[in-house]
Nucleic acid binder design. Structure first.
Length: 260
DNA sequence: ATGGCAAATTGAATTTGA
């Protein structure tokens, strides 16, 4: 089974790119973030006609929004409201006995100071709740994917020194995300696959004149598996070429192939 | 510490992203 995650930055704008990706990469399940679309406007018909009729969506106008698209039966669709908000940052479901958690963790604003910046405290509170949740319910037969908006390791950014005070790579975020992996019972399957030394990015800013030449990326998107699944991972890919598509998202898809 | 952009919404300017 091949599962992918992608922050699409508007699913309505990029539905044709999504369908092309699903077909060309033979994807069974795609988890999307930042769909930015109310449920009644989600392009379910185009996806069903393309061969992905099993869809779980949780969207709102303009911001956030997550979805799971599957060509296999998708059951047990559910969600949790993290930090007491209903802002469409999580959806879960079950495919072939595997529980999928799809997250869009808050970006956290500009200033990495919880006293001055409520968006940053929201982000840290969100991670703290996730850590508590998965510590109390250790996952099994589970996969957690999404735009987690943190690049935890030095090898996950173009310059760990220049980004040390930039939200997504501050010491507290890095430490807390690694604690969530550890205490939550997860394995970072992308890092495990490529090894500790390889520099890996999943996001490149729209602001660069030439994203390839400047290559100032960060690994903000993740695929984690519960530890019982770690030995079942057959392949992992980062589809960097998608950043070069016409009208691209600023994030690229990641995929994992699990023995089934 | 920032930013050369992009998207959605509302209707040229604002908010948000990271």
């Amino acid at each position: 089974m091949k599962i992918a995650t992608w922050n699409i930055n508007s699913v309505r704008l990029r539905i044709n790119l999504v369908i092309k990706f699903l077909k060309e990469h033979d994807i069974d399940v795609l988890c999307l973030q930042e769909t930015k679309t109310q449920d009644e406007q989600f392009p379910v018909q185009a996806l069903a006609e393309a061969g992905w009729p099993n869809i779980a969506i949780r969207g709102e106008k303009s911001y956030n929004g997550v979805a799971i698209l599957s060509r296999l039966p998708l059951t047990d669709i559910s969600h949790l409201n993290w930090t007491g908000r209903t802002d469409c940052r999580h959806i879960s479901g079950v495919v072939k006995g595997l529980t999928l958690h799809n997250f869009y963790i808050p970006a956290g604003g500009d200033e990495p100071d919880i006293d001055k910046n409520p968006k940053f405290s929201h982000k840290l509170n969100f991670i703290a709740e996730m850590t508590k949740h998965f510590s109390q319910q250790q996952p099994s037969r589970s996969i957690l994917v999404g735009d987690l908006n943190i690049a935890p390791l030095a090898e996950d950014v173009w310059s760990t020194r220049q980004l040390r005070n930039t939200v997504s790579h501050t010491a507290i975020e890095r430490k807390n995300l690694l604690a969530l992996v550890e205490q939550g019972g997860w394995t970072d399957s992308v890092r495990a696959h490529f090894g500790p030394k390889e520099v890996l990015f999943s996001w490149w800013s729209y602001r660069a004149r030439d994203w390839v030449a400047s290559n100032r990326g960060r690994r903000l998107d993740h695929i984690w598996v519960s530890r019982d699944l770690a030995s079942k991972v057959e392949a992992v890919t980062i589809e960097s070429a998608m950043r070069g598509a016409e009208k691209p998202s600023d994030h690229v898809p990641l995929t994992i192939t699990l023995q089934s």
